[in-house]
Design a protein around this nucleic acid. Structure first.
Length: 517
RNA sequence: GCCAGGGUAGCUCAGCGGUAGAGCAGGGGACUCAUAAGCCCUUGGUCGGGAGUUCGAUUCUCCCCCCUGGCACCA
């Protein structure tokens, strides 16, 4: 009953019409880092991610590939799952929208909304592109007022569809946003959303006739239709958290998870999907507790948006192979301010790896472990803080740990958190130079001081490793193992006990070969 | 067009009311435990332009200029 509140975090589910790129990877790593950070601090976490498998583009891509949509979606899904394993994404739940448990819950919600009068059927007529399979609006007309050749054959079509009474809930949403500035992080995205809500009008079309799109969840009250995108995709955050799940379905207990503490999404799907449709859907379904959104920016390439059509896709799988999972995770977290855009640059990745991971952190641990072995046979004496410099390092370590957590709590500013960890790492490296253990080792009268220096360095290296663990989990585990603190993720200073034995030193971040890649 | 973000050292970017910051790159130095890593010192900026508020503005307000997005189912 009084168990610690579970931190529930999700990512957008990825669309299975094409393989993953760097943007997908960034989002999952960001969510994973936040999840791991909570776990490392002892808070229970439920981390949900997954794939969106239905819809028109999947159906089209499948047709082009000459396979059934289910099979096509399954193949792409496998690529996503494999990449998440490779990148160390430690999700607790996995959402696939073709999952029958999801389908049943979605249909149940649709049935309720239908019963309570929130859905209605209406006839729409207009210009329709056969090639793009969508209705066109005046926005698609060119300067001459015509639909361009990119739309192919355009016909006038009349079609009946089901609509959700979004407009009915708009006043409620506007009020909710005004009263809950914490709904969206960062704040400026909240402003953007509020502006959009003020302009939003009309209802939401939520169906497609099966004659036009068969690959979707059937409307339980009108079997000629499937539900289109929103109720299918957005509901995943609730259905895979156990919403309306049957006993024994193998899903979590919804009551203990909801509301979601962070829906990690890209800036492109805040308005209108997650910022408008999603809260209104929840409200209509009778869920009062609203989730929170964490909206991240994009990785651009040379200032240009990454897109398939521009042909500048960056393959995270290749990067992970080339530099290692942790190096890629570190770069993705360090070189972007959460919420902002950044420019992806492989040279920067290499520089970050070399300077930060190999030279600063890796070398700190390596030289520390090495000296402990060389001067003390790998066993430390228990020594309190003996001199002013060691005391200053300890103070700095305590401050770094505090600042790390503050940065994470305050808008999930991972880049700032890492910066504070690196202040400690840099200070520890400086401490080596200032105390010059190699000199102390030559003077038996300085034995106690040498003990103190080694203890302080091990403490600092251990604390730094524990702090960065959420970002570079595998490497941090190895660093801690070398320091003789396997699995100790405490962010307290003062873990060394008398007789503490260190592991063996070995470079955790080998220098990059000078190469053109 | 509307809305938003960005314009800060050669490069990539933090900061956002109180004498301009980091990393990388460049220059110099002392050292040797270590992945020839690390440490110390250092060159370098009228913080896009203009006006205003203020004792004081890179930081707030207004105007303008450039770039990038969102407003259309691409993280």
């Amino acid at each position: 009953m009084m168990s610690a509140e579970i931190f529930f975090i999700t990512t957008a589910i990825d669309y299975t019409n094409a393989p993953p790129h760097i943007g997908h990877a960034y989002e999952k790593v960001l969510a994973d880092v936040i999840a791991r950070w909570h776990r490392d601090r002892g808070r229970p976490v439920f981390f949900l991610t997954g794939v969106d498998q239905h819809g028109q583009k999947v159906q089209q891509s499948a047709e082009r590939a000459g396979v059934p949509p289910a099979e096509f979606a399954r193949e792409i899904t496998a690529k996503f799952k494999a990449l998440w394993v490779k990148l160390g994404i430690a999700n607790d739940g996995w959402a696939e929208t073709t999952d029958l448990r999801h389908v049943a819950a979605v249909q149940d919600v649709l049935r309720q909304l239908h019963d309570q009068g929130d859905l209605y059927k209406a006839r729409h007529s207009g210009h329709y592109s056969v090639r793009q399979e969508q209705f066109l609006t005046d926005k698609e007309r060119n300067e001459q007022g015509e639909f361009g050749p990119e739309w192919g054959e355009v016909v006038f079509l009349e079609e009946e569809n089901w609509y959700f009474r979004l407009s009915k809930y708009r006043p409620w949403l506007a009020e909710y946003l005004a009263a809950h500035p914490e709904f969206v992080t960062p704040a400026f995205r909240g402003t953007e959303l509020a502006n959009a809500v003020a302009k939003e009008a009309g209802d939401l079309c939520i169906s497609r006739p099966k004659s036009r799109l068969a690959w979707g969840i059937e409307l339980p009250f009108d079997r000629d239709y499937v539900t289109y995108v929103w109720f299918d995709a957005l509901m995943n955050y609730a259905t895979f958290a156990g919403y309306r799940a049957r006993d024994g379905a193998g899903l979590p207990d919804f009551e203990s998870l909801w509301p979601c503490d962070a829906h990690v999404i890209g800036k492109d799907i805040l308005v209108p999907a997650h910022g408008i449709y999603w809260p209104v859907m929840l409200k209509a379904a009778g869920i009062e507790a609203m989730p929170k959104l964490l909206v991240h920016g994009w990785w651009n390439l040379g200032g240009a948006k990454v897109s398939k059509s521009a042909g500048n896709i960056i393959d995270p799988d290749v990067l992970a192979d080339r530099y290692g999972t942790d190096a890629l995770r570190y770069y993705l977290m360090r070189d972007i301010a959460t919420g902002q855009d950044a420019d992806f640059n492989e040279d920067r990745l290499r520089t970050r790896y070399q300077a930060d991971l190999a030279n600063d952190l890796g070398n700190l641990v390596n030289r520390t472990v090495s000296m402990a072995h060389r001067y003390r046979g790998g066993v430390l004496a228990e020594v309190g803080v003996t001199d002013a410099e060691a005391f200053a390092l300890r103070e700095l370590g305590i401050e770094a740990a505090r600042n790390f957590d503050t940065a994470m709590e305050d808008g999930f500013r991972v880049h700032a958190a890492l910066e504070s960890a690196w202040l400690l790492i840099t200070a520890a490296n400086a401490h080596v130079e200032k105390s010059a253990p190699w000199k102390l080792a030559k003077d038996p009268a300085e034995a106690a001081r040498l003990d103190g220096v080694l203890v302080a360095l091990v403490e600092a290296a251990r604390l730094a490793s524990a702090l960065v663990h959420p970002v570079i989990p595998a490497a941090a585990d190895t660093l801690l193992e070398q320091l003789g603190f396997s699995g100790d993720l405490s962010t307290q200073w003062g873990r060394v006990r008398a007789g503490h034995r260190l592991g063996q030193a070995a470079p955790v971040f080998p220098r990059l070969e000078s190469q053109e890649s």
